[in-house]
Design a protein around this nucleic acid. Structure first.
Lengths: 165, 165
DNA sequence: TATTGTTATACTCTATAACTATA
DNA sequence: TATAGTTATAGAGTATAACAATA
C-alpha cells in the first residue's frame, strides 16, 4: 500500500529508507534454502550417517561414475578440498572405492562399492520424496519456470562484477 | 552386487535409477543461495566489518526498532543465540546501544547508535544495488511470481512432517 | 515454574595456503 | 612449471544444553 503522506512522519527526527528484510531476495532465498538443507542434512545423517557432501559425491558416482576427484568437482559445485574430505569419509565408511589411474598416477578413480550403491538406492527415493513434497507447492509449469528463473539468477549472481570487490 | 539377470540392460551389470543433481531442487537452491550469501557476506565484511547476522539485526532495528532481542528473533529468522552473539558484536563495535527495559528487567532494549545508523545508510544502497543486479534476470511479473513461489515452497519446507524424523 | 538472554561446548563448514606426487 | 589431490590451520557458523536473572 502506498503512503498517504507525501513526506516522512514528523514524529521521527530522522528516518532513512529502510529494508523490508522479508522482501529482500537474498534473505528469502537464504531462509528457504537453509530450511531445506538442514532438513536434508538431518535425513542423510540420521538415517545413513552421511553428510550432504558425501551424498553429492555418491549421487554423481551413481550417475556418471567412475570419476576422478576433479570430475566430481566439475559436477557437484564443490571445490577440491570439500571433495577430498567427503571422499575420504566415504572411503572410510566403505561406500566408495578409490584407486589410482594407471595412465596418470596423480588421478584417482572413484567408484561406488556395493554398500555405497545400496546406500544410494535407499537415499534416492527419500530425496525424491522430499523433492516431491516440496513440489506439491508448485504445478508443473510453475516448477519449470522456477528452475528456469533459478538459472537466470545464478548467471547473474555469478557475474564477475559482484564475485569479488 | 545384486541380481544381474532381472535387469533389462545388457551393457550395465547393474543400473539403478539415478539423480540428476543439476535438476534437484534443493541442490539448485543451495548453489544459488550460497553464491549470493557468500557475495553479500564478503561485501558486508570487507567494507564495513560486519557479519550477515549483524546486518540483519541492524536492518531490523532501522525499520522496527527499538526492539528486544526476542523482537529481533521474531523478525530475522535467527535464534536467540545467534541474535545474542550478533548483538554483542555490534554493541562492541559501537553500532548498537543496549539498555535494560525498566518494565521487565529481563528484556533488553536495542537501538541503533548514530554510527550504526550511518553504517545502515551506507549498506542499504549496496544491498539494494545487488538485489537490483540480480533482479535484472527477471521482469517485474516474474519477480513477483518468484517471491510468491518461494513463500509456497517455504510453507512446504517448514511442514512438521519433514522438520524432524 | 517459565521466560529473557548469555555463556559453554562441541561440531560442522568454509577459505586459504602449504604441501606431495606426479606430469 | 603445472596439475591432482591431501593436509593444516584458522575463522565462521550451528546445535544443544546449562546457566543467571527476573517474572
Amino acid at each position: 500500500m502506498d503512503t498517504i503522506e507525501t513526506h516522512p512522519s514528523i514524529d521521527l527526527p530522522y528516518a532513512s529508507p529502510t529494508l523490508m528484510l522479508e522482501d529482500f531476495l537474498p534473505y528469502r532465498l537464504s531462509v528457504l534454502s537453509s530450511t531445506i538443507s538442514r532438513t536434508l542434512a538431518r535425513l542423510y545423517e540420521r538415517r545413513f550417517g552421511i553428510t550432504v557432501g558425501e551424498w553429492r559425491v555418491i549421487a554423481n558416482l551413481a550417475r556418471h561414475g567412475p570419476l576422478s576427484a576433479n570430475g566430481v568437482c566439475d559436477r557437484s559445485a564443490m571445490d577440491k578440498v570439500q571433495v577430498s574430505r567427503a571422499v575420504a569419509k566415504a572411503v572410510d565408511g566403505g561406500l566408495i572405492d578409490r584407486s589410482i589411474d594407471p595412465y596418470d598416477r596423480r588421478r584417482s578413480i572413484l567408484t561406488l562399492t556395493a554398500k555405497g550403491r545400496s546406500v544410494h538406492d535407499q537415499v534416492l527415493p527419500l530425496a525424491r520424496e522430499y523433492q516431491d513434497h516440496l513440489r506439491t507447492a508448485l504445478d508443473d509449469e510453475e516448477h519449470a519456470q522456477f528452475l528456469e528463473m533459478l538459472s537466470r539468477l545464478l548467471m547473474r549472481a555469478s557475474s564477475p562484477r559482484y564475485l569479488d570487490s
